[in-house]
Amino acid sequence: MSNKISPSPSGTLRAILERGEFVVAPGVFEMLGAKIADRMDFPALYMTGYGVSTSHLGQPDAGIAGFTDMQGRARTIAHGVSKPLIADADTGFGGLINIRHTVRGYEEAGVQAIQLEDQESPKKCGHTPNRRVVALPDAVRRIEVAVDSRRSRDFLIVARTDARTGLGLDEAIKRGKAFAKAGADIIFVESPESEDEFQRIGQELAGCGAWLIANMVPTGRSPEISAARLKELGFALAIWPGVLMQSACAAMENALAYLAANGTTAGSPVPSYDMKKLHELVGFEDVWAFEKRWAQ
């Protein structure tokens, strides 16, 4: 039997990164936004834990959503889109054996990259205060278990550190290097606080053997930097987890305010789909084709 590793399919996230294509991944958390994003010119999509927790449970991103909530939503999205899906898995939802279960569950669900954090449990959103991280050896062991648990090299491990806010950038970079040594495919230093910090991350983690990902959260702790500039700084991927949440909430609030004030949606300045376009987005054309062929 040959021990040669088969090449990655050309459409996998690994293959995209190995070709040197910069990945801009918008945050998705439900199927309408995921379907719209899937039709656009993005190499991959990112399932945001913040979005899943708030949309599915109506709760803040504070470790309340569990494995079943997140893996179930990841499965729905992964099977409903054509693009590779990167998915947030918080701290792995428990101890080391839970991390193994989470990695295998996300991989089985069709996710192509899983994001695991070094925060204490329950975790918090990376752009909120009072986050605490576990000791470095414990954080490294999480990544080692995740790498050992996956079944395919095309299932990528994203190792995130939240050490910058509480322990400083030096510690965050140290952890990034340790995570890469432990086998992580992608290193995620959360919430740098200036472009200079992003530049330093790119310089000091260059050559670590892993790709670098940046988290763009406008009005969060980090400045928003363009994809072109991030690529210059040494990053290979960037996520915009709030792009749909922020714009959708504003649009919903404005649409409802107009209806409440006017008793009608006629004349509303808020852009909206007509029913024909909505039917097409959600897949009614397939239903109608099925009924035409099979309905008596």
Score class of each variant (00 low, 15 high):
217 V>W: 06
289 A>H: 07
36 I>D: 01
201 I>R: 13
282 V>E: 15
205 L>V: 02
77 I>L: 14
161 T>N: 14
83 K>V: 06
103 V>E: 03
189 V>A: 05
119 Q>P: 07
11 G>E: 09
294 W>R: 06
197 E>A: 13
151 R>P: 05
80 G>L: 04
10 S>R: 12
58 G>R: 07
260 A>M: 13
93 F>V: 00
141 R>P: 00
255 A>V: 00
24 V>Q: 09
164 R>W: 04
220 G>K: 04
290 F>Q: 11
30 E>Y: 11
55 S>P: 08
47 M>I: 03
30 E>P: 10
133 V>Y: 05
135 A>Q: 10
102 T>E: 01
57 L>F: 15
187 I>V: 11
296 Q>R: 13
145 V>S: 13
70 M>G: 09
128 T>D: 02
109 A>Y: 06
288 W>K: 10
159 A>N: 14
247 S>A: 15
259 L>N: 08
83 K>T: 00
175 R>V: 00
73 R>T: 05
100 R>D: 05
169 L>I: 09
152 S>C: 03
33 G>Q: 00
212 L>C: 13
176 G>C: 03
286 D>Q: 14
101 H>L: 06
211 W>D: 02
48 T>D: 07
12 T>M: 12
110 G>F: 15
292 K>E: 14
296 Q>E: 12
66 G>S: 04
216 M>H: 01
100 R>N: 11
122 P>Y: 02
270 V>W: 14
262 N>Y: 03
191 S>A: 13
